[in-house]
Amino acid sequence: MPRPFLLPALLCLLMAQMACTDTFADAYARERQRLMTAIADLATETLSETGRPAFSAAVMAALTKVPRHRFVPADQVPYAYDNRPLAIGHGQTISQPYIVALMTDLIDPRTDQTVLEIGTGSGYQAAVLAELVAQVYSIEIIAPLATEAANRIRELGYANIQTRTGDGYYGWEEAGPFDAILVTAAASHVPPPLIRQLKPGGRMVIPVGAHFMAQYLLLVEKDEDGQVSTRQILPVSFVPLTGGGKD
């Protein structure tokens, strides 16, 4: 099994580089760095079921850059850089950073892409995406959350995120089709309009499960011919049989 020992080293290098810039000039830089090192270690320890040995360096860099503590309510700030899900009010949560990294990595973000997010929540995932792709569109169903997130995104200066309040089921027709779609809101099924708004070769990721923990991630892939298939991905490496290997 290939184990990319190189990645943590690369990451440290990257972090050292970034530490010189303004983006790290907040009081939580050290905590964020600790969290990212932990996530990098976790990713290399486990061959995740994405079929990749670890998260891409770009994704890790984006997470290293986004100040998670700015996206959580004041009483949750002390835990902002713990690798755990957090409550953000209105009965909503943000995923644990490890899962955010995994979901972001799964859509294979590139700098020329346009991405749609259903369920802005605090805006954290949108901010991570904004570091990686050209344009992010994000829809939130709960009005107060949408307003808070829009303000936050504006304050933090993310010019490439557009938000709106409302029903995500029909996607964002006029801005589509999208290279990737992230559905962080609960869904009983994959909305057919969203499948239509996915470009050939595009990917959609939906975390499925109860609050504070995704049971699995649903990856919807549309091939170049427009054929759609899904993959169900456990966030962890867990073989359901004792004494059984993966091969």
């Binding site: 486990t46 499960g209 923990m213 699995y216 004792t242």
Partner: peptide, 18 residues
């Protein structure tokens, strides 16, 4: 019970739903 330790060990990687 046999699976409990393994599952708790996977907490940081989102394994708690197990």
């Amino acid at each position: 019970w046999e699976s409990l330790t393994e599952i708790l060990g996977l907490k940081a990687r989102g394994g708690l739903s197990l």
